[in-house]
Design a protein around this nucleic acid. Sequence first.
DNA 1: AATACGGGGGA
DNA 2: TCCCCAGTATT
Length: 354
Amino acid sequence: MTPEKIIEFQQKLLQWYTENARILPWREDPSPYRVWISEIMLQQTRVETVKPYFERFIKEIPTIEDLAKLPEDRLLKLWEGLGYYSRAKNLKKAAQMIVEKFHGQLPSDSKSLQSLPGIGPYTSGAISSIAFGQRTPAIDGNVIRVMARILAEERNVDDPKVKKNIENALERLLPEHSVGDFNQALMELGATLCIPKGMPKCLQCPVNSFCKGYYQDMAQYLPRKSPKKKRKIEQKTIEVMQWEDKFALRKRPEEGLLSNLWEFPQREGHLSLEQCKKEMKKHNIEARRIISLPPSKHIFSHIEWHMIGYHILLEECPKNIELTWVTPGEIREKYSLPSAFKAYYAFIELISGE
DNA sequence: AATACGGGGGA
DNA sequence: TCCCCAGTATT
């Protein structure tokens, strides 16, 4: 593109953004802290999902210092249901580093930002451009799609070489001023017009005259990506153990899936009622009554849990150091229980009459 | 280069 | 059922 064309592209896109930008909580005051929190929450997560989490988070933890000293259990409770929980743990780690190494202020350049845990190539570019006005690209899934269509890039965009090519093309398009708006405009375009599914709304697009994919009538078939691999299926048996008005939870390990979150005790495989009774006896747990609960399925990005469950009513409280006994109300207020256990949590709320 | 890591919404 | 989402860290 000629320099004149580039200027025209920038103007068209920014003008469209001025008129069509959605009103979002993190846009009303794009301070570095708020932009940071929003960008972390928005990683692989839809805008509509993030909105309520963001508002609640900022209200309770308004500054980096507050975040740096926030207890992890409280942090995980605020993150409950949002997924990718290492984001929350990295957030606190990064806040402590910012207090220690950067005098409590987020650095403005993308290189320093990337030295903080949880901040990679996309997020560093987003923060430095949106919060600090630095001329850095912010390439997320939206931008990849928009650029692949503009360039009519038919190669696999999962290939780092192809991604680098898109980055180079985008660098040349970045304006000297309003870079944050420019980056957000590209993402907004991807989210509202240049959409991933269904027909892209090219007729409404402010930059369709620059789009090679549009002229070749190819936009809807781009970008091309590597095929996904299939999920592994795991069978689980969930034990909903009740003693008086309390239920047993245990804390998951520090590493791996759903680390440090709470769960109902579970065993590998689908145990029959008889096997379940046998397990109870083996651990010297006296059950008054065991009934089976409806099966439930939970889909992660890379695993499927196919769960069956048993409600196990106990005579006395077992002296198992692993287990923590809590009421449904306490779970709701204090314990971070992943969405995978929703069906069984709903059951205990139901039988507790809450 | 491939895999781990959540959860939900829409076709 | 599958894909995608304002991706990052680890292997």
